[in-house]
Write a protein that binds this DNA or RNA. Structure first.
Length: 770
RNA sequence: UGGCCCGUCGUCUAAUGGCAGGACACCGGUCUUUGGAACCGGCGGUGGUGGUUCGAAUCCACCCGGGCCAACCA
């Protein structure tokens, strides 16, 4: 397993594509350095596991390295227990940081020096407002903030204050260091962010060495830069922080190539409580037994439950990497676990909810041993164990039905069923207790039918598992379910540090106290992961299965298509989907406020016949447009090229930043209008002009794009393409006309973009259809 | 309400102007001494409206929907 996905090229995720491109271009001299940067303030969970797989995985695939770095800049929340658990979890997952273990707290001195640089440059100042004032001064998402009265403090004064902050002259909260950026920025994080604060608290590693501590946005980018990280990968919610990340690095003086931040969605797993903030209260309030309670989604919990680390790595592959914030179904994790365990886990029999069966025609004192293979025919592994058979057996209560539903293939009164690896039995009598509950089944067996021997006419459809009562081992089994009943509330655990009102699932932990297991397991290694036939994958609970006591955790159930059928509601509830509210034929209203611009828009629209939405764009850079118009007078045409095609290439720049002016665009449009180049070719030229500058006529020449519409030349290209794709031609003729685009595309490629696509399409149509 | 990010089968994800593909789930079948596994088949998608183009999931505009941001947390 673990077939590595493509590390680059189409099909690779967008982050791997970036890394591959940077390696190819030599941006970092071929180096790839990632990092996994947990704060040691809690246990790792599945979401982190995906981050571990991503960062360590990329490093591995590209021959780089991945640092484990503790982001321990907050003395109040962090401790050694958490650093210990994090290391254990990452190793368990199968990754190794080698010698690259780092602590942000080791960088405090260097970070401090960088802060003095910022102050000296006038890019940071000591603010002496109280917390509330700073918060209020920041404004809101719709209103600009107001500058602090201390914003104009001189660098010298700030420097003095900052040094005294470090020296411990002030109380907590008396001053902070702030970046001097832009109190009106639409990005709240840029409104003079707090960089340092005073906190007289012992740090778990630094003790009392410091009483000022850096904040995340200041610290994290510096940590990356100090370590020479190339690709700093984090989750979507840090998107807004990237601007500040870049600001700090650029202004402290880190030059390219320096680290850059990339955001991906991370994992949101259905039914799992996925944030340290929400897990902690569950532990503190003893809703669960600890960070390793198997109901939790922490790695410690998965490990204890018996989930193999390979399954989590598989899950990471299945889920993939994107920027779409989305929720992954639990079924995918279950699949990954079964996928890993199926070829590995020995099969063994255990009866979870026992019902006594007496085989009346089997002698009381007799017992025989059946040699049962550990693996089914389709798992290529060796091994077997003896399974004792005797007169009294346990079978699963759910494997008998007095009044069987349609399709029931197990034991019924007067009916027969195969005992796995053993005989076929028939139920002769049902014995009930005083209140009518079934307490015993009296059956007879057919001594002629054993293991594989099945005379004609005696076909038995169902097979059930069983254990010999006299030989069985007693065990406890624990079955785990989701903690919260409601799918929607799992994110709202701890609004106020307590456990929320969200309803808990009373069946999140089900203890089965009377389980009977076949005796062979008594001799197995304690960390054996079994498949209990027909029920699921199990292993001994590593904490509570002590001193010979057998306690099994269910890792994951087997797929059970019968149970699914059983639990189907009698009447499918009607679910009328509300009609999509998305109908949007509202007239887009003009957003132009500036009267001069509005006048230009009106003129372009009314006098030149330019569509209004294009006119709005052009009115922004009138000079560019006018010059283009001077070179080619068809206004709507020019407008469309600028407003649509050129704009698409801008990537945030403005028209005036371009290495050419409007007239070059006008001339290019003219070439198209004269039929000298195809539109397609013109777009290639335009792209080249944007990236490298240059003159359109010369580029057409040097790129060999003069339009080809001569039927002879075109025909040859068409024939060549058709000859190269015989199967596709057949498919097309069989009706798959969407392939026409493929053929046109191939002709365009064949002629390196010079063909007249309309002509090519016409020709293709004739050849293909006629 | 300002800024940013994101919308592709039920779910996750490919397609980087040219064949909408894979996986999970689901449904059906084959096989089976596990109602497992395996194998075969099926269902099913580009949020909407316009625009550009020979050709749009992809580029442009607007709309709709979801998420993030106003800790001296990370």
């Amino acid at each position: 397993m673990e077939s590595p996905k493509a590390a680059s090229g189409p099909g690779a995720d967008f982050i791997r594509q970036v890394v591959a491109a940077d390696v190819a271009s030599g941006r970092y001299g071929g180096r790839v350095v990632t990092r996994f940067p947990p704060e040691p303030n809690g246990y790792l969970h599945v979401g982190h596991a995906m981050g571990v797989c991503l960062n360590f995985g990329i490093a591995r695939e590209f021959g780089g390295r991945c640092h484990l770095r503790y982001d321990d800049t907050n003395p109040e929340k962090e401790n050694e227990e958490f650093v210990r658990s994090i290391e254990e979890d990452i190793r368990w997952l199968g990754f190794d940081w080698g010698e690259h273990l780092y602590f942000a707290s080791d960088y405090f001195e260097r970070m401090y020096e960088c802060a003095e640089v910022l102050i000296a440059k006038g890019l940071a100042y000591v603010d002496s407002q109280p917390t509330d004032a700073i918060r209020e001064g920041r404004g809101t998402v719709t209103e600009a903030g107001v500058p602090s009265p201390y914003r104009s403090r001189s660098p010298d004064e700030s420097l003095d204050l900052f040094r005294r902050m470090r020296a411990g002259e002030f109380e907590d909260g008396a001053h902070v260091l702030r970046g001097k950026i832009d109190m009106a920025s639409p990005n709240m994080l840029m409104r003079d962010p707090v960089l340092y604060r005073i906190r007289h608290a012992p740090h778990y590693r630094q003790g009392d060495a410091w009483c000022i501590y850096p904040l995340y946005d200041y610290a994290h980018c510096l940590e990356d830069a100090f370590e020479g990280i190339t690709h700093s990968i984090c989750t979507l919610e840090f998107d807004n922080n990237r601007e500040l990340y870049d600001w700090v690095l650029d202004n402290v003086g880190f030059e390219e190539p320096r680290p850059h931040q990339y955001e991906w969605a991370g994992l949101d797993l259905e039914g799992a409580v996925l944030s340290k903030r929400n897990i902690k209260p569950l532990v503190d309030a003893h809703v669960v037994s600890g960070y390793d309670d198997p109901r939790l989604a922490t790695l410690a919990a998965y490990r204890r439950r018996g989930v193999p680390p390979e399954a989590l790595r598989l899950l990471s592959q299945l889920v993939g990497v994107s920027k779409t914030g989305a929720k992954t179904e639990e079924a995918k994790l279950d699949f990954a676990i079964r996928e890993v365990l199926n070829p590995l886990a020995p099969r063994v029999m255990a009866v979870l909810d026992p019902l006594k069966v007496v085989v009346t025609n089997y002698s009381a004192g007799k017992a025989e041993e059946i040699d049962a293979p550990y693996f089914p025919h389709d798992v290529p592994r060796e091994g077997s164990r003896p399974v004792p058979f005797s007169r009294e057996l346990w079978i699963e209560r759910s494997d008998f039905a007095e009044r069987p539903p349609k399709g029931f293939r197990r034991l019924v009164p007067g009916g027969g069923v195969r005992l796995r690896y053993a005989y076929v039995i028939r139920c002769d009598e049902v014995i009930k207790g005083p209140s009518g509950e079934i307490i015993e089944l009296r059956c007879t067996y057919d001594p002629d039918i054993r293991s594989g021997v099945s005379p004609e006419g005696r076909k038995t459809k169902g097979t059930i598992h069983w254990v010999s009562a006299a030989h069985a081992l007693e065990a406890e089994v624990r079955i785990f379910g989701r903690i919260f009943l409601d799918y929607d509330h799992e994110g709202e655990v701890a609004k106020d540090g307590g456990v929320t009102a969200a309803p808990l699932n009373p069946e999140s932990l089900m203890v089965l106290p009377n389980v009977r297991v076949e005796p062979s397991v008594g001799a197995d290694p304690v960390d054996t992961r079994y498949q209990f036939e027909r029920t699921g994958y199990f292993w001994r609970d590593p904490v509570d299965a002590v001193g010979g006591r057998l306690v099994f955790n269910r890792i994951v159930p087997l797929k059970d298509t019968w149970a699914k059928r059983e639990s189907e509601p009698a009447v499918a509830e009607p679910m009328p989907a509300p009609p999509q509210a998305g109908a949007g034929d509202e007239r887009p209203r003009p957003r132009v406020q500036d009267p001069a611009m509005a006048a230009r828009v009106a003129r372009y629209r009314d006098e030149l016949g330019v569509p209004e939405e294009h006119a709005e764009v052009l009115a922004d850079s009138p000079a560019f447009f006018e010059r283009a118009l001077a070179a080619h007078t068809n206004a709507p045409d020019v407008a469309s090229w600028i407003a649509v095609d050129l704009r698409g290439l801008l990537e945030g720049r403005s028209l005036t930043d371009l290495p050419f002016d409007g007239s070059a665009v006008g001339r290019l449009v003219g070439l198209v209008a004269q039929g000298r180049i195809s539109r397609r070719a013109a777009k290639d030229v335009l792209a080249r002009m944007v990236s490298e500058g240059g003159d359109p006529e010369a580029l057409v020449e040097s790129m060999g794009l003069a339009q080809v519409s001569d039927p002879g030349v075109l025909g040859a290209a068409v024939d060549a393409v058709l000859a190269r794709w015989p199967e596709k031609v057949a498919e097309f003729r069989a009706g798959k006309e969407s392939l026409l685009g493929l053929f046109v595309g191939e002709v365009m490629k064949q002629t390196r973009g010079a063909a007249d696509p309309a002509a090519a399409k016409r020709l293709l149509g004739e050849r293909l259809r006629g």
